[in-house]
Design a protein around this nucleic acid. Structure first.
Lengths: 213, 213
DNA sequence: GCAACTCTAATCAACTTTGACTAGGGTACC
DNA sequence: GGTACCCTAGTCAAAGTTGATTAGAGTTGC
Protein backbone atom coordinates (compact mmCIF):
# COMPACT_ATOMS: atom_id res chain seq x y z
CA UNK A 1 0.00 0.00 0.00
CA UNK A 2 1.37 3.37 -0.99
CA UNK A 3 0.31 6.55 0.76
CA UNK A 4 -0.94 8.42 -2.30
CA UNK A 5 -4.53 7.22 -2.37
CA UNK A 6 -5.08 7.88 1.30
CA UNK A 7 -3.58 11.34 0.99
CA UNK A 8 -5.58 12.29 -2.09
CA UNK A 9 -8.88 10.90 -0.82
CA UNK A 10 -8.37 12.63 2.52
CA UNK A 11 -7.48 15.95 0.94
CA UNK A 12 -10.47 15.93 -1.44
CA UNK A 13 -12.75 14.96 1.43
CA UNK A 14 -11.53 17.85 3.60
CA UNK A 15 -12.43 20.31 0.87
CA UNK A 16 -15.69 18.76 -0.13
CA UNK A 17 -14.74 19.57 -3.70
CA UNK A 18 -11.25 20.12 -4.98
CA UNK A 19 -9.21 20.26 -8.17
CA UNK A 20 -5.78 18.72 -8.58
CA UNK A 21 -3.79 21.83 -7.89
CA UNK A 22 -5.64 22.38 -4.63
CA UNK A 23 -4.87 18.86 -3.47
CA UNK A 24 -1.27 19.33 -4.43
CA UNK A 25 -1.08 22.53 -2.41
CA UNK A 26 -2.63 21.00 0.68
CA UNK A 27 -0.25 18.11 0.59
CA UNK A 28 2.68 20.47 0.17
CA UNK A 29 1.42 22.41 3.15
CA UNK A 30 1.76 19.18 5.08
CA UNK A 31 5.24 18.63 3.72
CA UNK A 32 3.94 15.43 2.10
CA UNK A 33 5.95 15.94 -1.07
CA UNK A 34 9.01 15.44 1.09
CA UNK A 35 8.07 12.30 2.97
CA UNK A 36 5.81 10.56 0.47
CA UNK A 37 5.26 10.12 -3.24
CA UNK A 38 2.75 12.96 -3.34
CA UNK A 39 4.31 14.56 -6.41
CA UNK A 40 2.24 16.22 -9.17
CA UNK A 41 2.26 13.29 -11.56
CA UNK A 42 1.20 10.85 -8.87
CA UNK A 43 -1.55 13.12 -7.58
CA UNK A 44 -3.15 13.70 -10.97
CA UNK A 45 -2.82 10.05 -11.82
CA UNK A 46 -4.45 9.00 -8.55
CA UNK A 47 -7.32 11.43 -9.10
CA UNK A 48 -8.05 10.09 -12.58
CA UNK A 49 -7.66 6.47 -11.55
CA UNK A 50 -9.94 6.80 -8.55
CA UNK A 51 -12.50 8.71 -10.59
CA UNK A 52 -12.51 5.83 -13.06
CA UNK A 53 -13.02 3.40 -10.18
CA UNK A 54 -15.92 5.34 -8.73
CA UNK A 55 -14.17 6.49 -5.57
CA UNK A 56 -14.29 10.07 -6.79
CA UNK A 57 -16.78 11.91 -8.98
CA UNK A 58 -15.27 14.26 -11.58
CA UNK A 59 -17.01 17.52 -12.46
CA UNK A 60 -16.07 19.22 -15.71
CA UNK A 61 -15.21 22.83 -14.95
CA UNK A 62 -14.74 26.03 -16.95
CA UNK A 63 -11.23 27.14 -18.06
CA UNK A 64 -9.68 28.17 -14.76
CA UNK A 65 -10.08 31.56 -13.17
CA UNK A 66 -6.39 32.28 -12.82
CA UNK A 67 -4.54 31.18 -15.91
CA UNK A 68 -3.41 27.73 -16.86
CA UNK A 69 -5.36 24.87 -18.42
CA UNK A 70 -8.99 24.11 -17.48
CA UNK A 71 -9.46 22.42 -14.14
CA UNK A 72 -11.43 19.35 -13.19
CA UNK A 73 -12.99 19.34 -9.75
CA UNK A 74 -13.46 16.16 -7.78
CA UNK A 75 -15.79 15.11 -5.02
CA UNK A 76 -15.57 11.99 -2.91
CA UNK A 77 -18.31 9.38 -3.39
CA UNK A 78 -19.84 7.14 -0.77
CA UNK A 79 -17.73 4.28 -2.03
CA UNK A 80 -14.71 6.56 -1.84
CA UNK A 81 -15.44 7.40 1.78
CA UNK A 82 -15.58 3.72 2.64
CA UNK A 83 -12.27 3.14 0.91
CA UNK A 84 -10.83 6.16 2.67
CA UNK A 85 -11.73 4.94 6.13
CA UNK A 86 -10.52 1.47 5.32
CA UNK A 87 -7.14 2.79 4.14
CA UNK A 88 -6.91 5.05 7.18
CA UNK A 89 -7.49 2.17 9.59
CA UNK A 90 -4.94 0.05 7.79
CA UNK A 91 -2.37 2.85 7.84
CA UNK A 92 -2.67 3.27 11.59
CA UNK A 93 -2.62 -0.42 12.40
CA UNK A 94 0.07 -1.69 10.07
CA UNK A 95 3.32 -2.25 11.89
CA UNK A 96 5.62 -2.51 8.91
CA UNK A 97 8.13 0.21 8.29
CA UNK A 98 6.28 2.33 5.76
CA UNK A 99 6.85 5.74 7.29
CA UNK A 100 4.91 7.56 4.59
CA UNK A 101 1.77 5.51 5.08
CA UNK A 102 1.85 5.94 8.82
CA UNK A 103 2.48 9.66 8.48
CA UNK A 104 -0.53 10.00 6.20
CA UNK A 105 -2.59 8.05 8.70
CA UNK A 106 -1.62 10.36 11.52
CA UNK A 107 -2.59 13.31 9.38
CA UNK A 108 -6.14 12.03 9.13
CA UNK A 109 -6.42 10.27 12.47
CA UNK A 110 -8.92 12.79 13.79
CA UNK A 111 -11.45 11.60 11.20
CA UNK A 112 -12.01 8.61 13.48
CA UNK A 113 -13.63 8.54 16.91
CA UNK A 114 -11.09 8.95 19.71
CA UNK A 115 -11.69 5.48 21.14
CA UNK A 116 -11.16 3.80 17.80
CA UNK A 117 -7.95 5.72 17.18
CA UNK A 118 -6.54 4.54 20.50
CA UNK A 119 -7.62 1.00 19.77
CA UNK A 120 -5.96 0.95 16.35
CA UNK A 121 -2.72 2.34 17.76
CA UNK A 122 -2.72 -0.32 20.45
CA UNK A 123 -3.08 -2.91 17.73
CA UNK A 124 -0.08 -1.32 16.05
CA UNK A 125 2.01 -1.69 19.20
CA UNK A 126 0.99 -5.31 19.55
CA UNK A 127 1.82 -5.97 15.90
CA UNK A 128 5.25 -4.44 16.37
CA UNK A 129 5.86 -6.66 19.38
CA UNK A 130 5.02 -9.80 17.43
CA UNK A 131 7.02 -8.69 14.43
CA UNK A 132 10.03 -8.01 16.62
CA UNK A 133 9.80 -11.47 18.12
CA UNK A 134 9.70 -13.10 14.70
CA UNK A 135 12.73 -11.14 13.48
CA UNK A 136 14.68 -11.97 16.61
CA UNK A 137 13.98 -15.61 16.05
CA UNK A 138 14.87 -15.33 12.38
CA UNK A 139 18.35 -14.02 13.05
CA UNK A 140 19.26 -16.10 16.05
CA UNK A 141 19.25 -19.61 14.66
CA UNK A 142 20.46 -22.38 16.90
CA UNK A 143 23.95 -22.08 15.46
CA UNK A 144 24.34 -18.61 16.94
CA UNK A 145 24.15 -15.24 15.26
CA UNK A 146 27.74 -15.37 13.96
CA UNK A 147 26.38 -17.36 11.02
CA UNK A 148 25.05 -14.18 9.53
CA UNK A 149 28.13 -11.99 9.87
CA UNK A 150 27.42 -8.37 9.15
CA UNK A 151 24.08 -9.36 7.60
CA UNK A 152 22.86 -9.65 11.18
CA UNK A 153 23.20 -5.89 11.40
CA UNK A 154 20.26 -5.56 9.03
CA UNK A 155 18.07 -7.49 11.43
CA UNK A 156 19.48 -5.52 14.32
CA UNK A 157 18.45 -2.37 12.51
CA UNK A 158 14.88 -3.62 12.08
CA UNK A 159 14.58 -4.56 15.71
CA UNK A 160 15.88 -1.18 16.75
CA UNK A 161 13.36 0.51 14.47
CA UNK A 162 10.51 -1.59 15.77
CA UNK A 163 11.37 -0.64 19.33
CA UNK A 164 11.59 3.05 18.51
CA UNK A 165 8.28 2.89 16.61
CA UNK A 166 6.53 1.18 19.49
CA UNK A 167 7.82 3.70 21.97
CA UNK A 168 6.63 6.61 19.88
CA UNK A 169 3.23 4.99 19.37
CA UNK A 170 2.79 4.50 23.11
CA UNK A 171 3.53 8.20 23.59
CA UNK A 172 0.89 9.15 21.06
CA UNK A 173 -1.66 6.85 22.66
CA UNK A 174 -1.05 8.55 25.98
CA UNK A 175 -1.46 12.03 24.53
CA UNK A 176 -4.70 11.04 22.86
CA UNK A 177 -6.05 9.35 25.98
CA UNK A 178 -5.25 12.52 27.93
CA UNK A 179 -7.52 14.51 25.67
CA UNK A 180 -5.25 15.96 23.01
CA UNK A 181 -6.75 17.08 19.67
CA UNK A 182 -10.33 17.16 18.46
CA UNK A 183 -11.63 13.87 17.12
CA UNK A 184 -14.65 12.85 15.07
CA UNK A 185 -17.88 13.75 16.81
CA UNK A 186 -16.24 16.09 19.29
CA UNK A 187 -17.19 19.41 17.72
CA UNK A 188 -15.49 21.79 15.32
CA UNK A 189 -12.72 19.76 13.67
CA UNK A 190 -9.23 21.08 13.09
CA UNK A 191 -8.66 21.54 9.38
CA UNK A 192 -5.09 21.36 8.18
CA UNK A 193 -5.76 23.32 5.02
CA UNK A 194 -4.49 26.64 3.88
CA UNK A 195 -7.11 29.36 4.39
CA UNK A 196 -8.50 30.32 0.98
CA UNK A 197 -6.11 32.72 -0.74
CA UNK A 198 -3.38 32.52 1.87
CA UNK A 199 0.20 31.82 1.03
CA UNK A 200 1.87 28.52 1.70
CA UNK A 201 5.11 29.10 3.57
CA UNK A 202 6.24 25.53 2.97
CA UNK A 203 5.56 25.19 -0.75
CA UNK A 204 7.95 23.54 -3.18
CA UNK A 205 10.89 25.51 -4.40
CA UNK A 206 12.45 26.51 -1.15
CA UNK A 207 13.72 23.31 0.34
CA UNK A 208 14.85 23.55 3.95
CA UNK A 209 18.45 22.88 4.80
CA UNK A 210 19.19 19.19 4.86
CA UNK A 211 16.86 18.22 2.06
CA UNK A 212 18.11 15.73 -0.46
CA UNK A 213 18.00 15.68 -4.25
CA UNK B 1 16.58 5.91 -5.16
CA UNK B 2 15.10 2.48 -4.74
CA UNK B 3 17.11 -0.39 -3.33
CA UNK B 4 16.74 -2.76 -6.25
CA UNK B 5 19.72 -1.68 -8.34
CA UNK B 6 22.09 -1.75 -5.42
CA UNK B 7 20.84 -5.17 -4.38
CA UNK B 8 21.06 -6.67 -7.85
CA UNK B 9 24.46 -5.19 -8.69
CA UNK B 10 25.84 -6.32 -5.35
CA UNK B 11 24.46 -9.83 -5.71
CA UNK B 12 25.81 -10.28 -9.23
CA UNK B 13 29.18 -8.92 -8.13
CA UNK B 14 29.41 -11.38 -5.21
CA UNK B 15 28.94 -14.26 -7.60
CA UNK B 16 31.16 -12.98 -10.37
CA UNK B 17 28.58 -14.33 -12.77
CA UNK B 18 24.96 -15.01 -11.98
CA UNK B 19 21.60 -15.61 -13.60
CA UNK B 20 18.37 -14.08 -12.42
CA UNK B 21 17.20 -16.96 -10.32
CA UNK B 22 20.49 -17.04 -8.43
CA UNK B 23 20.19 -13.35 -7.61
CA UNK B 24 16.64 -13.87 -6.51
CA UNK B 25 17.69 -16.69 -4.20
CA UNK B 26 20.50 -14.70 -2.62
CA UNK B 27 18.21 -11.81 -1.92
CA UNK B 28 15.63 -14.10 -0.42
CA UNK B 29 18.32 -15.57 1.79
CA UNK B 30 18.81 -12.05 3.07
CA UNK B 31 15.09 -11.63 3.60
CA UNK B 32 15.20 -8.81 1.05
CA UNK B 33 11.88 -9.77 -0.52
CA UNK B 34 10.32 -8.83 2.80
CA UNK B 35 11.91 -5.46 3.40
CA UNK B 36 12.47 -4.24 -0.14
CA UNK B 37 11.03 -4.44 -3.62
CA UNK B 38 13.33 -7.32 -4.53
CA UNK B 39 10.54 -9.38 -6.09
CA UNK B 40 11.05 -11.53 -9.21
CA UNK B 41 9.60 -9.04 -11.66
CA UNK B 42 11.70 -6.21 -10.34
CA UNK B 43 14.87 -8.29 -10.30
CA UNK B 44 14.57 -9.45 -13.90
CA UNK B 45 13.61 -5.97 -15.01
CA UNK B 46 16.60 -4.44 -13.25
CA UNK B 47 18.94 -7.01 -14.79
CA UNK B 48 17.73 -6.27 -18.32
CA UNK B 49 17.69 -2.55 -17.80
CA UNK B 50 21.18 -2.42 -16.39
CA UNK B 51 22.45 -4.71 -19.14
CA UNK B 52 21.01 -2.27 -21.67
CA UNK B 53 22.77 0.58 -19.90
CA UNK B 54 26.11 -1.17 -19.86
CA UNK B 55 26.29 -1.76 -16.10
CA UNK B 56 26.00 -5.48 -16.63
CA UNK B 57 27.14 -7.71 -19.46
CA UNK B 58 24.69 -10.42 -20.53
CA UNK B 59 25.96 -13.82 -21.66
CA UNK B 60 23.61 -16.00 -23.65
CA UNK B 61 23.52 -19.41 -22.00
CA UNK B 62 22.32 -22.88 -22.98
CA UNK B 63 18.85 -24.08 -21.93
CA UNK B 64 19.24 -24.51 -18.18
CA UNK B 65 20.61 -27.61 -16.51
CA UNK B 66 17.62 -28.12 -14.23
CA UNK B 67 14.41 -27.49 -16.08
CA UNK B 68 12.78 -24.23 -16.91
CA UNK B 69 13.47 -21.74 -19.68
CA UNK B 70 17.00 -20.92 -20.84
CA UNK B 71 18.93 -18.71 -18.47
CA UNK B 72 20.90 -15.58 -19.14
CA UNK B 73 23.98 -15.06 -17.04
CA UNK B 74 25.17 -11.62 -16.10
CA UNK B 75 28.52 -10.21 -15.12
CA UNK B 76 29.22 -6.76 -13.72
CA UNK B 77 31.15 -4.35 -15.94
CA UNK B 78 33.66 -1.75 -14.87
CA UNK B 79 31.02 0.91 -15.28
CA UNK B 80 28.67 -1.24 -13.22
CA UNK B 81 31.21 -1.50 -10.43
CA UNK B 82 31.54 2.26 -10.33
CA UNK B 83 27.79 2.64 -10.18
CA UNK B 84 27.61 -0.03 -7.49
CA UNK B 85 30.11 1.72 -5.22
CA UNK B 86 28.44 5.04 -5.81
CA UNK B 87 25.01 3.64 -4.89
CA UNK B 88 26.50 1.92 -1.86
CA UNK B 89 28.06 5.11 -0.56
CA UNK B 90 24.86 7.00 -1.11
CA UNK B 91 22.81 4.36 0.69
CA UNK B 92 25.03 4.52 3.75
CA UNK B 93 25.21 8.29 3.88
CA UNK B 94 21.63 9.26 3.10
CA UNK B 95 19.76 10.20 6.21
CA UNK B 96 16.24 10.06 4.83
CA UNK B 97 13.96 7.37 6.06
CA UNK B 98 14.30 4.81 3.29
CA UNK B 99 14.79 1.72 5.42
CA UNK B 100 15.16 -0.57 2.43
CA UNK B 101 18.00 1.41 0.92
CA UNK B 102 19.89 1.61 4.17
CA UNK B 103 19.36 -2.10 4.78
CA UNK B 104 20.78 -2.90 1.37
CA UNK B 105 23.73 -0.65 2.11
CA UNK B 106 24.47 -2.43 5.36
CA UNK B 107 24.37 -5.72 3.52
CA UNK B 108 27.23 -4.62 1.29
CA UNK B 109 29.08 -2.35 3.69
CA UNK B 110 32.04 -4.71 3.92
CA UNK B 111 32.81 -4.05 0.24
CA UNK B 112 34.32 -0.76 1.39
CA UNK B 113 37.48 -0.21 3.43
CA UNK B 114 36.75 -0.06 7.16
CA UNK B 115 37.81 3.58 7.51
CA UNK B 116 35.55 4.72 4.70
CA UNK B 117 32.58 2.82 6.12
CA UNK B 118 33.02 4.57 9.45
CA UNK B 119 33.39 7.91 7.72
CA UNK B 120 30.20 7.47 5.69
CA UNK B 121 28.22 6.45 8.75
CA UNK B 122 29.47 9.51 10.60
CA UNK B 123 28.25 11.61 7.70
CA UNK B 124 24.91 9.90 8.09
CA UNK B 125 24.71 10.84 11.76
CA UNK B 126 25.59 14.42 10.93
CA UNK B 127 22.96 14.52 8.18
CA UNK B 128 20.33 13.23 10.58
CA UNK B 129 21.28 15.94 13.07
CA UNK B 130 20.84 18.68 10.48
CA UNK B 131 17.64 17.21 9.15
CA UNK B 132 16.23 17.00 12.67
CA UNK B 133 17.04 20.65 13.24
CA UNK B 134 15.30 21.68 10.04
CA UNK B 135 12.17 19.71 10.89
CA UNK B 136 12.06 21.13 14.40
CA UNK B 137 12.22 24.60 12.94
CA UNK B 138 9.58 23.75 10.35
CA UNK B 139 7.01 22.74 12.92
CA UNK B 140 7.70 25.32 15.56
CA UNK B 141 6.96 28.58 13.78
CA UNK B 142 6.94 31.72 15.85
CA UNK B 143 3.20 31.35 16.40
CA UNK B 144 3.78 28.22 18.45
CA UNK B 145 3.23 24.59 17.54
CA UNK B 146 -0.50 24.68 18.24
CA UNK B 147 -0.94 26.12 14.75
CA UNK B 148 -0.42 22.68 13.34
CA UNK B 149 -2.81 20.75 15.57
CA UNK B 150 -2.44 17.01 15.22
CA UNK B 151 -0.41 17.55 12.03
CA UNK B 152 2.46 18.35 14.39
CA UNK B 153 2.43 14.68 15.37
CA UNK B 154 3.73 13.83 11.91
CA UNK B 155 6.76 16.02 12.48
CA UNK B 156 7.11 14.61 15.98
CA UNK B 157 7.19 11.15 14.45
CA UNK B 158 9.98 12.14 12.05
CA UNK B 159 12.05 13.66 14.80
CA UNK B 160 11.61 10.55 16.89
CA UNK B 161 12.67 8.39 13.95
CA UNK B 162 15.69 10.54 13.24
CA UNK B 163 16.82 10.22 16.84
CA UNK B 164 16.38 6.47 16.85
CA UNK B 165 18.22 6.17 13.54
CA UNK B 166 21.13 8.25 14.79
CA UNK B 167 21.41 6.21 17.94
CA UNK B 168 21.51 2.96 16.04
CA UNK B 169 24.07 4.35 13.60
CA UNK B 170 26.36 5.41 16.45
CA UNK B 171 26.15 1.88 17.82
CA UNK B 172 27.16 0.42 14.48
CA UNK B 173 30.06 2.86 14.16
CA UNK B 174 31.31 1.73 17.53
CA UNK B 175 31.10 -1.95 16.68
CA UNK B 176 32.99 -1.37 13.43
CA UNK B 177 35.65 0.75 15.10
CA UNK B 178 36.13 -2.00 17.65
CA UNK B 179 37.01 -4.42 14.90
CA UNK B 180 33.78 -6.19 14.06
CA UNK B 181 33.42 -7.91 10.68
CA UNK B 182 35.87 -8.33 7.82
CA UNK B 183 36.11 -5.35 5.50
CA UNK B 184 37.59 -4.79 2.06
CA UNK B 185 41.32 -5.49 2.01
CA UNK B 186 41.29 -7.37 5.31
CA UNK B 187 41.48 -10.92 4.04
CA UNK B 188 38.92 -13.61 3.35
CA UNK B 189 35.61 -11.77 3.04
CA UNK B 190 32.38 -13.02 4.54
CA UNK B 191 30.06 -14.06 1.76
CA UNK B 192 26.36 -13.98 2.52
CA UNK B 193 25.48 -16.43 -0.19
CA UNK B 194 24.00 -19.86 0.05
CA UNK B 195 26.65 -22.54 -0.42
CA UNK B 196 26.13 -24.10 -3.85
CA UNK B 197 23.36 -26.65 -3.68
CA UNK B 198 22.33 -25.94 -0.11
CA UNK B 199 18.76 -25.27 0.87
CA UNK B 200 17.50 -21.84 1.77
CA UNK B 201 15.69 -21.97 5.11
CA UNK B 202 14.18 -18.52 4.59
CA UNK B 203 12.89 -18.84 1.04
CA UNK B 204 9.49 -17.58 -0.04
CA UNK B 205 6.48 -19.65 0.77
CA UNK B 206 6.87 -20.03 4.50
CA UNK B 207 6.35 -16.59 5.90
CA UNK B 208 7.24 -16.14 9.54
CA UNK B 209 4.56 -15.19 12.01
CA UNK B 210 3.74 -11.52 11.85
CA UNK B 211 4.25 -11.11 8.14
CA UNK B 212 1.75 -9.04 6.29
CA UNK B 213 -0.11 -9.62 3.01
C1' DG C 1 3.10 -45.67 -18.31
C1' DC C 2 0.66 -41.67 -17.51
C1' DA C 3 -1.86 -38.05 -14.74
C1' DA C 4 -1.02 -34.88 -11.25
C1' DC C 5 2.27 -32.38 -8.98
C1' DT C 6 6.35 -29.72 -7.86
C1' DC C 7 10.41 -27.11 -8.85
C1' DT C 8 13.14 -24.01 -11.74
C1' DA C 9 13.39 -19.88 -14.38
C1' DA C 10 11.57 -16.26 -16.55
C1' DT C 11 7.90 -13.32 -18.97
C1' DC C 12 3.93 -10.32 -19.37
C1' DA C 13 0.25 -6.91 -18.98
C1' DA C 14 -1.50 -3.71 -15.99
C1' DC C 15 -0.50 -0.29 -13.08
C1' DT C 16 2.23 3.37 -10.58
C1' DT C 17 5.85 6.75 -10.21
C1' DT C 18 8.85 10.30 -11.84
C1' DG C 19 10.64 14.60 -13.52
C1' DA C 20 10.68 17.28 -17.26
C1' DC C 21 7.80 19.76 -20.14
C1' DT C 22 3.68 22.57 -22.01
C1' DA C 23 0.62 26.25 -22.18
C1' DG C 24 -2.16 30.14 -20.66
C1' DG C 25 -2.09 34.28 -18.43
C1' DG C 26 -0.28 38.14 -15.39
C1' DT C 27 3.44 41.43 -14.01
C1' DA C 28 7.74 44.19 -13.71
C1' DC C 29 10.94 46.80 -15.92
C1' DC C 30 12.80 50.10 -18.85
C1' DG D 1 4.85 48.31 -25.70
C1' DG D 2 7.62 44.42 -25.72
C1' DT D 3 10.23 40.98 -23.53
C1' DA D 4 11.72 38.42 -19.73
C1' DC D 5 9.96 36.28 -16.01
C1' DC D 6 6.83 33.99 -12.87
C1' DC D 7 2.59 31.61 -11.46
C1' DT D 8 -1.23 28.30 -12.29
C1' DA D 9 -2.65 23.82 -13.75
C1' DG D 10 -1.89 19.91 -15.84
C1' DT D 11 0.18 16.31 -19.42
C1' DC D 12 3.45 12.99 -21.04
C1' DA D 13 7.00 9.54 -22.08
C1' DA D 14 10.11 6.74 -19.80
C1' DA D 15 11.00 3.95 -16.11
C1' DG D 16 9.87 1.02 -12.28
C1' DT D 17 6.78 -2.35 -9.78
C1' DT D 18 3.58 -6.10 -9.15
C1' DG D 19 1.22 -10.46 -9.21
C1' DA D 20 -0.28 -13.72 -12.16
C1' DT D 21 1.07 -16.73 -15.59
C1' DT D 22 3.88 -19.67 -18.67
C1' DA D 23 6.80 -23.37 -19.78
C1' DG D 24 10.27 -26.98 -19.36
C1' DA D 25 11.68 -30.87 -16.78
C1' DG D 26 11.85 -34.10 -13.12
C1' DT D 27 8.92 -37.05 -9.44
C1' DT D 28 5.33 -39.49 -7.28
C1' DG D 29 1.37 -42.55 -6.93
C1' DC D 30 -1.15 -46.05 -8.59
Amino acid sequence: MSAIRLLVLGAVRMHGRAHGYQVRNDLEFWGAHEWSNAKPGSIYHALKQMAKQGLLKAHEVAPSTAGGPPRTEYEITEQGTEEYLSLLREALTSYDQKMDVLSAGIGFIVDLPRAEAVDLLKQRVEGLREWRASVTEYYTPQDGPEQLGHIGEIMNFWVHSADAGAEWTRGLIERIENGAYVFSGEGEPFVGVLPEGEENPYATGEPHPGDEN
